[in-house]
């Protein structure tokens, strides 16, 4: 790995002015579980690495004015250990708990995950299904990007070179709801998703379905959602919706699985995730982390 300049500012403004000055020659560092490996392999060669772990403003999970705010420094482990996330955002909790391993979750962050923006990313589907927003700052000001618009392609996001993601903002749901995240991976502990599905339902029969690892970006299954909207779920409706969800995805064959297998399994996973979400809403079961595939 090339040597580089390592800076660890204590204030957001300092980090932002550095980024404005250096642009793409500088990279932000959170857990480094993506960035380190990319630098080690020579895929990215930043002149300067700006470590954000000295900035206290980027810490913490907070509920305020109908939203839950997750700061950029919040690790997967902190998400899993948060009662708020467990209670209010079980799909995000389940996704967090299945990322990599404890050793990676202790340093890796949700924000680093979405900034890296690989198609398999675990953080994408839950955020899309929640209609979450990505909070962005630069030295010129700040803006919010809807999660659905944040991902623009494989490893591409809507961020400009001088911008930093400071966190994400997730709307708190009113009334009863049920949610699920299902991951298809080959084994636990390190494997990236071959496919992932997040489902959120509420007692007014609104359904939100998002998938990862089966298109260049995480995607919402809008046609399936429209079919379901306002209807009470039963098995045959869930099957039809799952079939329709396949029209929103465009999986490829790669080292982890074939396109055909991904299509097949997405149908199975969407159906089971729908059934399990409604069942969780009505009965509290299956318990978090129950294997659905």
């Amino acid at each position: 790995m090339e040597n580089f300049r390592y800076l660890k500012p204590a204030a957001i403004d300092k980090a932002l002015s550095l980024k404005k000055e250096l642009g793409s020659k500088a990279r932000f560092l959170l857990g480094g579980t993506d960035l380190f490996i990319q630098m080690d392999k020579g895929f990215v060669v930043p002149e300067t690495v700006i470590d954000l772990k000295g900035i206290d403003e980027l810490k913490g999970i907070e509920k305020k004015d109908g939203y839950v705010y997750v700061g950029a420094r919040v690790t997967w482990t902190q998400l899993i250990e948060s009662d708020l996330i467990r209670k209010e955002f079980p799909a995000l909790w389940e996704a967090s708990d299945i990322v990599a391993s404890v050793g990676v979750r202790n340093t890796g962050t949700l924000v680093g995950n979405i900034c890296n923006a690989v198609p398999s990313l675990e953080g994408g589907s839950p955020l899309l299904a929640y209609n979450a927003a990505v909070l962005v700052k630069s030295s010129q000001g700040e803006r919010e990007i809807p999660a659905a618009d944040f991902f623009t392609g494989v490893k591409k996001t809507a961020l400009a070179d001088d911008e930093m993601v400071t966190g994400v903002k997730i709307p708190v749901k009113n009334g009863k709801f049920g949610e699920v995240y299902v991951k298809m991976g080959r084994y636990e502990g390190e494997d990236l998703a071959q496919a992932g599905v997040a489902v959120v339902v509420d007692d007014k029969n609104n359904y939100r379905i998002a998938l990862n690892a089966v298109a260049p970006t995480p995607v919402r299954a809008e046609k399936a959602e429209a079919l379901l909207s306002g209807k009470k779920l039963d098995e045959s409706l869930a099957e039809k919706a799952a079939e329709l969800a396949l029209e929103s995805i465009s999986p490829i064959s790669d080292i982890r699985s074939s396109k055909e297998y991904r299509l097949h399994m997405c149908r199975v996973m969407v159906k089971r995730a729908l059934m399990a979400s409604v069942s969780r809403m009505e009965t509290g079961k299956p318990a978090l982390n129950t294997r659905l595939i």
């Binding site: 390592y6 579980t33 490996i37 080690d40 482990t77 404890v102 050793g103 202790n106 340093t107």
Partner: peptide
């Protein structure tokens, strides 16, 4: 106190 992978830590 938290387990970390020292091979991918600066």
């Amino acid at each position: 106190g938290l387990s970390v992978r020292s091979c991918i830590t600066f």
